[in-house]
């Protein structure tokens, strides 16, 4: 069993990249902590919101990877039935999950802390859509690109999504906070 192989390198270097991305995301969050905390329910929404991009875009990239490895998906064709279906499903999931996250954050704030923060629901929905408008096409493009270059997207995509997702999600939340 060869432990230090290509897989090891791919996972290791993508983790190093993720460390830097995490620091950027953490710094961004630290800078705008006061603004984000101003809205009641935001701390309840935040972990689920940040995690959502991994759950939806990550599963999207993982499904594509399985299809690419099995030869069911052609790495040179973007406009196919399977990819369109995956795309639509991912966006519908974003709408449903962000709506649920918003409602849960609202419910917890209302029933536990006694704060009526209805604004958190449209904010979660809008920020989720905004973040995934960038995140999902990026996941599609990167999975295909990595596969065509001979890499295993399973080793790298998780990190790319988490790293870019932190920054994109926090910026989307900040933009939406100004809009709503």
């Amino acid at each position: 069993m060869k432990l230090f192989d290509k897989d090891f390198e791919e996972i290791f270097y993508s983790q190093i990249l993720s460390l830097l991305g995490g620091l950027v995301g953490g710094t961004l969050l630290a800078i705008y902590t006061n603004q984000l905390l101003m809205l009641p329910g935001m701390l309840i929404l935040l972990p689920g919101f940040l995690e959502m991009r991994g759950n939806i875009s990550g599963s999207f990239a993982s499904r594509l990877s399985s299809g690419l490895f099995l030869g069911v998906i052609n790495p040179k064709k973007y406009n196919t039935r399977i990819i369109r279906g995956n795309f639509i499903a991912s966006f519908l999931l974003v709408i449903l999950v962000t709506l649920a996250l918003g409602i849960v954050a609202f419910a917890f704030s209302f029933f536990i802390f006694g704060i009526y923060a209805i604004k958190i629901i449209p904010m979660a929905l809008l920020a989720g859509l905004l973040a995934n408008l960038i995140e999902i096409p990026l996941a599609l493009y990167m999975t295909f690109y990595l596969f065509r270059k001979g890499h295993d997207p399973n080793n790298i995509m998780g990190t790319i999504i988490t790293t870019t997702g932190d920054v994109i999600s926090i910026i989307s939340l900040l933009i939406t906070m100004v809009l709503v």
Partner: peptide
């Protein structure tokens, strides 16, 4: 804290997808 959260999530994704 945010870096550890990302890292653990990444390992979860790598383990799951692989």
């Amino acid at each position: 804290l945010p870096v550890i959260n990302d890292m653990i999530g990444n390992y979860g994704t790598v383990i799951s997808s692989k």
